[in-house]
Design a binder for these strands. Sequence first.
DNA 1: TTCATGATACCACTTTGTTGGTATGGGGTA
DNA 2: TACCCCATACCAACAAAGTGGTATCATGAA
Lengths: 212, 212
Amino acid sequence: MIKVLLVDDHQLFGEGVRSMFKPTDGIEISRITTNGHQIPSILEEEKIDVILMDISMPNIDGIGAMQLLKQKGFDVPILMLTMHQDMKYIKRTLEGGAQGYILKDASKQELTEAIQKVSRRENYFHPKINNQIFNFLRGDKGSSDVDLVGQLSDREKEIIGCIVKGLNSKAMADTLFISEHTVKTHRRNIMHKLGVKNTAELVTFSLEKGIV
Amino acid sequence: MIKVLLVDDHQLFGEGVRSMFKPTDGIEISRITTNGHQIPSILEEEKIDVILMDISMPNIDGIGAMQLLKQKGFDVPILMLTMHQDMKYIKRTLEGGAQGYILKDASKQELTEAIQKVSRRENYFHPKINNQIFNFLRGDKGSSDVDLVGQLSDREKEIIGCIVKGLNSKAMADTLFISEHTVKTHRRNIMHKLGVKNTAELVTFSLEKGIV
DNA sequence: TTCATGATACCACTTTGTTGGTATGGGGTA
DNA sequence: TACCCCATACCAACAAAGTGGTATCATGAA
């Protein structure tokens, strides 16, 4: 029996998946939590074979939760469950060390197969995203938006967050306790790194790429 | 036994919800489809008491599907199931004549109650969104994001589209074959209508509310 | 017809954003 | 140590956005 910890902020989804598996399936959703921060304590309480986790969650997102687990030294295979099939998410998931990636748009059969493979520490990727991974690995420059985001420093992301919220340079300076000159320097560097030519484009890019 | 037709593009979710209900619950997910266009033929084949439908779906969205059913003369109570709690969706759902609105973020108990109420043609609204509806019905300008969007003219939405794409006023003027003065007038009117104080906020608002 | 609205256009002015530099101190790495 | 990156800071100048007016014309509703 494979014991699964399900991490998803949608209760209905969690309970649904749990009741989907019968003992004969060899899979049991033994724990459910809606908060990624609770994963460590659950892993300490109970033997868990696979973590099935949503990427987009309110408190801490799936990728953040993965990093947290890695830092704390936990080594449980993680199967990411999500509705996003953007390369952005896939890449960040793989970089974070997930064992597999499956879409909410999958069948029970596919999920079962995925959980089984991941529990054996084999990789699983949902067929729908295999193509994208394949294309990405061919390394065409076209898909290098991701790198642009990766080049941003934490402070720069913070600045972007403020811009998106509508703060102007002066307000940001006051909020972050730095000079307006500094804010402007950051803005300039950000725009250069992202290759955008004005604030509007910066905001659009940031929201679409999920920087904020 | 209440017979439910579930319409959701995420197979896993559908199968999950189906296996969540036991005969003793008095609710049965008797049919599942991932395509809203198939609803009419299913309703003709089988007696359905409640349609449980996701709003965001690829082929035809939940709201479109509702309109389709109304046009074809079907009168089955519809419970909208979604992860969006923006007033935009709620309003469009209610206008479309749905009997209830529940979040994916709900518990099995809540879903059960919702299905039962809707099957009796009572309204059901998830607690989380009740406040929003309440505020909205009071018609305070403050909470009526929806009205803000509704007040925009087509031309203004077009301008917003250009701004979001990163065009500046001069570029827009050239693109739309109008004077730069006119573009600025539009920008001003848009910002006033949406209650934002700069372009960054305008872009954020527009992308989040789905104006573009 | 009268009225309201939307799209268009112009002017003058202020504020903010954008670009071009330069520079210093701290932290980490080759 | 020398080097690079990051956050910080300043100056000057130009471009763009934003503010406060006013105004015309067409359209559709009252």
